[in-house]
Amino acid sequence: MSSPLFDSIRKELEARKDDIRPSDIILFSEPLRTALNAVIHLKRFSLTEFAANLPFTREETKLLADLLIKRNLFELFAESPGEPVYMARLSAMTRPLTRPPTDLWKKID
C-alpha cells in the first residue's frame, strides 16, 4: 500500500492539465520540489538518481517520472533494462513572450 505522502504527490501531478513550467517548480510540495531541483541540475539522470532524492519505492518513483513525462518536464533519454535515463527539459512548449505571466505573481505570493 502506498504512503499518504506519495498519494498526495501523485494526485498533485495527476490534477495538472498543463505542461509544467519553471515557475511551477517553486510550488510543488516537498519532497518533490527538492527532488526536482536536484535532478534539474544534472544534465541526464537515471531512475536510481531520481529515487535517491525521494522517500518512495522505485516503482512509485517510476510512476511519478511517467507523470512528469506526460507534463513535459521529463523526457525519456535512454532505457537500459530496468534503468530509464531521463532529461529535465523545463517546458517543451512554445509560447509568445508577450503573453502575460498570468499566475507568476500569484505563485510567488
Binding site: R89, A92, M93, T94
Partner: peptide
Amino acid sequence: LRDGYDVG
C-alpha cells in the same frame, strides 16, 4: 515577441 519560442 509575437510568436514565442520553444523554451525547452
